[in-house]
Structure formats: C-alpha cells, structure tokens
Nucleic acid binder design. Structure first.
Length: 827
DNA sequence: GGTGCCCCGGCCCCG
DNA sequence: CCGGGGCACC
C-alpha cells in the first residue's frame, strides 16, 4: 500500500505529516501522539481512545518517514495478545519484515536477549523457564533441604518474597533480614538462586533481573543496544514495576544524552496489577525523570455509548489518586445499563444463558458477547449452564493448557532430554509413572546431590542397591530418549517421548485418563502448529544472531552445522525447535486467542479482558466479597484497585452493558450469602435500568432453598459455612489447547460430565435443617443501626445466649448477641 | 520401602 | 483441580 516506503526521494517528516494516508482519520490528540517529535513522550490514553492504533501508527509513521528502521524499534507490551495484535496491525499498514523488530512482552524480549547473550548471562543457551508451579516446587525443595519448618517458612509466601526482592532489583546480598523469618527466607532465596543456577533454569522475575544486570554492568552491550534502539514504545506503562522501569532506562539511556526516543503509553485508571508489583507512580516518575515536555491525553472514546461512559466516569471519580482524565464520546447515550439480581449463582448463570440466546436470536454474533467475572472459579457454574443449553462458549485463562498435569509431565521429559540437570523436571517424572522409586530413595538421592553439589541426574550412582538400580534405569531411559529423538522433527520427538516415558500406557489404563490422553495428543498438534507458525520448516536457513550482539556475545557461532538446530525465524537466533517450543510453553502457557471463524460466547476474568472490547458485556458476580474481592475490601489502596478493575470491566462494552449479582453463591464448596457490591451504588442511577426490583429481600423466595444450615463462619471475612465440594471432580474448564493451533473445539466434542450435571441439579432438601431463633434465620437480611444492612450467616445458642453471625459487607462479618444487639429483620 | 487410594486444604488477578 | 499426608497392603 505505501509504495513510498522504499522511495529514496521520499519526503521528510514534515511533509509526510500532512499527506501520509497513515494519518487519515486521526483526531488531533492522536495525531499529536503519532507524530510527536523524537524524545520522551508520555501518552495518557483512556479506555477505548484508540491507544493501540496510535502505537502501531506511530511505528508505521516512523518507518515510513525514514526516522527509524525496523531494527531500531522496540515495542514492549505485557501480554502476548497485545504484542500479536500490534504486529498484525502493523503488517496490515506496511509491507515490512517484522523479523528485525523487537516487538513482544517484557518477558519475551528478555528471553530473546538472554538467549543471545547466554554466555554473559552465565546460562546454558538452552536454559529453561520455570513457571509459577515449577518455582513453587523448587522453593519447597530448597526449604526441605535447609530443614526449615514449612509452617514457619511458608513456601508460597517465600516465592512471593523472592519475586518481590527480584522486582526490587535485589539479590540476597542486598538484603538485610529484620527477624528470624527474614533470615530464613533470605537463606532460602540464596539457596534457591544457587539451585536454579546449578540446574540452568530461570523464573519469570529472573528473566527481567538478569537482563537488567547485564545491561547495567556491561557498558559495551548497553551502548550497543542504546545505539540500536532509537525508538522504544511501552504499552500499558501503568502496569510496569520498578525493575521494568529500570530495565527501560538501561535500554533507552538518558534521552538528553543519546537521543533515544521513548514513548510511554498508559492509563492510570486501568492499573490493575499492583498485586504483582506494578507501580502507577512510574508514570509520574517517567514524566519527571525523562523531562517530558507535554503529556498527551487521549480522552475521546470511540468505543462505548454514553450511559456506559457516564457510569465509568462516575465510578472512577471516587478514586483519590488519579492523574485526571475524563472520557467523552460523540456517540449517543445508547441504552441504559441493565442490572439483574438473581437468587443464586445457578439462577444468574441461567439468566446469562437466556440473554445470550436472546442476543443470538436478534442476530448478534456470539463472539460479541462476553461474560466477565472477577475470578476464574466463577466460570464453572456459567460454563455448566451454557453447556447444558448447548450454547457454544470459549473460556480464556483458568487452568491453561501447558499447566495441566499430564502436559507438564510430558514437558518435563522433554526438558530432561535437553538438560538432564533440571532437577525440578527430574523430580516431577522420575517416579511418574511409578518405577519403584519412592520418597525414601529420593531423600537419599537429594542428600547425596546436596553434599556433592551436583544434580540429581549426576548423583544416581550414590544410591546403593535396588533403589539405585531403578534410578540408573531412569537415567538410561532419558539418555535413550535423547538418542532416539536426535534429528527427529519436533512432532516425532514428542510422540516418541509420550510413548517411551510410559505416560501413554499409564493414562490408557487410568479410568479417567481419556481426556488426559487427548491433551497429550493435543500437545503434539500444538508442537506441529508451532513449528509451522514459527518457520522452523525444512528450508529454514541458519542465520547469524543479531550482528552487533553477536560480536559482543563472545564468539557466538553465526552458523550451525547440526541438523536439529535451527534459527528462530524471527530473530535468527540459533536455538533448536525443542528449546523454542519449551520456551513457548513457559512464556505463553497456552495463552489464548479466539479460534478463527468460531462463534462462541467469550468467558474470561476482568483482568484477561483488559484491552478487549465487545458489543455486549455482562459483568457477573457483583457482590461484596466477590467484586470487590474480600481480601481487598478493607484497605483503601486495594479497594481503589478493585474499583479500577470495575472501571476496566465497564469500559469493555461498546453497545450494551449488563451487570448481574446473586444472593447466594456456592464457593469453595460452601454457600455464601452475599450482599450486592458497593460498586453498584457508585454508578449513576440515571444510567441504570433494574430488571429486578431494587433491594429485593434476601430471605425470600427462591433463595430460601439454598440456605445453609451448617453455616459456621470462622471469623472476619469468612462468610461461609462448612460443607462438601460437590462439583470439584474431573474435567475442568478450558480443557484443550486454545492457542489457535488446533481445529478441535472442546465445547463441542466434550462429553457431558458429572460435574456439569451436578451443577444445575436442585439442591438437596437437607437444608431444611435450618432453624430460626428470635425471628432470625440464616440467609435473612437484617438491619443494624451502626453496621447497616447485612445477612445472617449463622445462628448459635438459644434464648439469652442466642448469637448470630452477620455479614455486613463493607463492615465485615460480626458476631452479635441477639439479646444485646439492636437488630431488625428486613422484609 | 513402594504403591495406590482417600481425604484434606487451598484457590483472586498474571507472564 | 492439584499436591501432600496418612494409611492399608504388598
């Protein structure tokens, strides 16, 4: 289309500004951002303000006007989805070769960097990436090795501690413990780091930190990249953490010194990742430290109708710390936001199904219908209702494909082929399927390995007797696999490993193994598609690593002889398809894009929905404790984050927004009695349309049959009773790999499963054990002079001793003596 | 000492 | 769901 791209007589930027077709249709603010002069730029981009368009158009414009070459551009995003979107749009605008461009996620780019500089990084070139699960088990192993009490040094909390330290840029030596726990955690951190180094593996935070450190400590490398990347664009800047910001500074250098042009695009109102270290303050810091002359604000919203924007604006205005920004739209007010109160989560799900069908009858495509929820667990009941009604749907997130146990097992064997010293993978499969290697033997092995400072694989000879022979046999198996698969295609490698490992046989005989077998078959498909997609085809030619980097990377070979080693099609970096695929599995985890041509309702968390838009959005589960989440309700900062999350949810809608909540919800196998979310009260009444009577009583009607007689709350925040977890068995949502690789449509071919049948079955009558005391019943709505509206959770004792536990929403749940508290029932 | 099975506890959001 | 602990049985 833009034939003048390679025109040597092409006009300079000023003239292109006026006549480039790229710029047609941009509003003045967008135009200002796209054509901003080189230098630091901060763009405050409201939801639906055309942010991605601005980013991609700017890149295209920089290329078209000759201000940049593809190799001189770096564009960083947070999600794979966003990176792909950017690349796709860019390729539609310009006939460019995207291979030289560094467009990707922070972690993806770090991976690329570390593969190229693996020697400087002191890593094997085929280093593997630990996902959250792997990291946790590695940390557990360390804690056990140090003989610490897991009750005290809680593994999960320790992984959090380690990740935090890394995100602060801190190594163990940089930390000073305050107390015993701190000392022990620090020891774990150090030992964990040693262990990872020994095994040749890195976790997510390590990808970032190690890249940062190389740039910080190695001037030639740093200067090389600073010379190379003349333009850096950062998407979702509000979600960057401290380390990512420092990382950016390393790549950009000081703009006033070397003239690198950095454009940071973000929206403080959409900052929803504080829980993993994001600092909105990076935006203000950027403005100050990079000496941004003028902040460009994109406030014109092209997405949503008026009522939707009014609601979003009014809601977010309640947050105190904002840079300040108000969205406006030229579109009409549109339809008011519909609010639906359901008696139960089952009823809510049924309503959602009915709505989806209605929308389909009206001719709207289902992929324009999104059901959003706060947490993944909420999807099950909705899935079951959709499934039973035969409405196609697609779940994003949840337990992702590459995180499934059987897939991780297969991947562990593959990783051992690449690197037998990967102890995490070794432990995962050494006795799976069972080979007579038990806990006792592994303890011995681990002790021996610890003493000699070698890997488990290297230490098997230290274990005597039958057990030692079994271990040696396992090593033999791994070695045999490596030999048997040398030179094979990725597909053949995986097929071989699935058979030779015994996984296939194991799952064939397992009674619930069928679905797992299917997933293993799917893994082969995913690999096949990966090879095709990434250009690891037969005719792939070995190419040099990035030239400058290659020179610095101390004699990295620029050509390869081995047939099983091929270059990454995008970068020319030399890695084997297997390593590339394993990396892909760790970094993308089966991250999902919709399958082409498939018309299905879209189910996802609000977090996953960021950056997306739909004609019809349903925000479900608007209950205090769910949304806002109970862990975030009583703290100002985190409540503001929840509010931003709600803001993100609202602004996903183009035409119609629907919000639902329910009186009772099964969660963790227990019935909870919720009151509606405070966020509902923060929306403008004039933009709402209640489909059910407002403030409908809780103890009435349909909800009654779900009252839980065993409710026995366990203190503040625990608004649940005890009980079984009837639906927790088998299956699981999102089964099947959704990465666009396979034509398999799991929702269509999935057998009806028990869990789904159970879900919509009527609740048992056992609930009738409910009793009343002094006119109060479990589930009843009550009013208290000080705490306001609440719901009775538990009744205990009788007569003068009678006490109740009441969930007062924002005031938490309280135990009250009936004889003392002034509690009145609400009809 | 290993295996298989049952039960339990945890689980928000993510690369 | 997943991992882990406890337990009966080999």
């Amino acid at each position: 289309m833009s034939s003048d791209l390679f025109d040597p007589f092409h006009s300079g930027p000023d003239q292109a500004l006026s006549d480039s077709p790229l710029l047609a249709g941009l509003n003045p603010e967008q135009l200002a951002a796209v054509t901003a002069p080189p230098g630091p730029n901060l763009v405050l981009a409201g939801a639906g303000s055309g942010k991605t368009r601005v980013l991609t158009t700017r890149i295209a414009w920089l290329l078209q006007t000759g201000q940049a070459t593809p190799g001189g551009i770096m564009a960083v995003t947070f999600t794979n989805k966003a990176a792909k979107e950017m690349l796709t749009r860019l390729q539609a605008m310009l006939p460019i070769n995207a291979r030289g461009m560094w467009i990707g996620t922070f972690h993806g780019l770090c991976n690329r960097f570390l593969r190229a500089h693996y020697q400087l990084a002191h890593l094997p070139q085929a280093f593997q990436i630990l996902d959250t699960q792997d990291q946790l088990s590695a940390v557990k192993r360390v804690i056990k090795g140090l003989k610490f009490d897991e009750e005290k040094v809680v593994p999960k909390a320790t992984t959090w501690f380690i990740a935090n330290a890394k995100e602060e840029g801190k190594r163990p030596r940089d930390l000073v413990p305050r107390d015993d726990l701190g000392r022990m955690q620090l020891e774990v951190y150090q030992a964990y780091e040693d262990q990872c180094q020994r095994e040749g593996v890195v976790d997510f935070a390590e990808l970032m930190l190690r890249t940062y450190e190389i740039l910080r400590d190695n001037a030639p490398v740093r200067e090389h990249y600073q010379r190379r990347f003349r333009h850096i664009l950062v998407d979702e800047f509000q979600d960057t953490n401290k380390l990512q910001y420092a990382w950016l500074k390393m790549f950009s250098g000081r703009p006033d010194v070397n003239g690198c042009s950095v454009m940071a695009v973000g929206d403080d109102d959409q900052s929803i990742y504080a829980f993993r270290g994001a600092q909105v303050s990076n935006m203000a810091d950027f403005e100050r430290e990079y000496r941004v002359q003028r902040v460009i604000k994109l406030e014109q919203n092209y997405r949503s109708h008026g009522h939707i924007l009014d609601a979003a604006n009014e809601l977010i205005a309640r947050n105190s710390k904002r840079l300040g920004k108000t969205l406006r739209t030229d579109q009409g007010q549109g339809e008011p936001i519909r609010i639906y109160e359901a008696a139960s989560d089952f009823a809510e799900a049924q309503w959602l199904v009915d709505e989806a069908r209605q929308l389909r009858r009206e001719g709207g495509p289902l992929h324009e219908v999104a059901f959003l929820y706060r947490s993944n667990a909420q999807s099950r009941v909705i899935e079951s209702a959709l499934f039973n009604a035969g409405v196609p749907y697609k779940v994003y997130g949840g337990l992702r494909f590459f995180e499934r146990a059987e897939v991780k097992h297969a991947l562990a064997y593959l990783r051992l082929i690449e690197n037998p010293n990967d102890d995490t993978s070794f432990l995962r499969v050494v006795n799976f399927p069972a080979r007579g290697i038990g806990a006792r033997t592994l303890e011995q092995l681990q002790d021996a390995a610890r003493i000699s400072g070698r890997s488990l694989y290297q230490s098997v000879t230290a274990v005597p007797g039958k057990a030692g022979a079994n271990l040696a046999a396992f090593n033999g198996l791994i070695d045999a696999m490596r030999e048997a698969t040398a030179g094979l295609t990725l597909r053949a490698i995986i097929e071989h490993v699935v058979q030779a490992s015994g996984l296939a046989d194991f799952y064939r005989t397992e009674k619930e193994g069928q679905e797992r077998l299917e997933n293993l078959a799917e893994l082969v498909n995913a690999a096949e598609a990966f090879v095709t997609q990434e250009g690891f085809g037969k005719d792939a030619v070995a190419m040099p690593v990035d030239e400058g980097a290659g020179a610095i990377a101390q004699g990295l070979p620029t050509a390869v002889a081995r047939v099983d080693v091929l270059p990454d099609a995008e970068t020319g970096e030399i890695i084997s398809p297997l390593v590339a695929f394993l990396t892909h599995a760790a970094l993308e985890a089966g991250d999902n894009q919709a399958q082409a041509g498939q018309d299905a309702v879209q189910l996802m968390t609000v977090h996953a929905a960021k950056g997306l838009e739909f004609n019809n959005v349903f925000i479900t589960g608007l209950e205090d404790g769910m949304f806002p989440h109970e862990n975030s309700m009583n703290d100002g900062e985190s409540l503001e984050e929840e509010r931003r999350l709600m803001y993100v949810a609202i602004t996903r809608a183009r035409k119609k927004l629907h919000i639902s909540f329910c009186q009772t919800r099964m969660l963790h196998g227990q019935t909870r009695y919720n009151i509606k979310s405070r966020f509902l009260d923060e929306l403008p009444e004039a933009s709402l349309k209640w489909l059910t009577p407002r403030n409908q009583g809780f103890g009435s009607g349909y909800a009654k049959q779900y009252q839980d007689a065993w409710a026995s709350g366990k203190g503040l925040g625990s608004v649940v009773g005890a009980g079984a977890q009837p639906w927790r068995s088998g299956g699981g949502q999102g089964s099947g790999y959704n990465g666009g690789y396979s034509g398999g449509q799991k929702w269509a071919e999935r057998r009806p499963q028990d869990e789904f049948k159970d879900l919509t079955a009527p609740m048992p009558k056992a609930m009738a054990a409910n009793r009343s005391e002094g006119g109060f019943k479990v589930g009843q709505q009550v009013f208290h002079n000080k705490f306001g509206e609440g719901v009775v959770l538990t009744l205990e004792g009788s007569g003068p001793d009678a006490r109740v536990q009441v969930n007062f929403g924002r005031h938490g749940s309280k135990w009250l003596m009936l004889s003392v508290a002034k509690l009145t029932p609400i009809e």
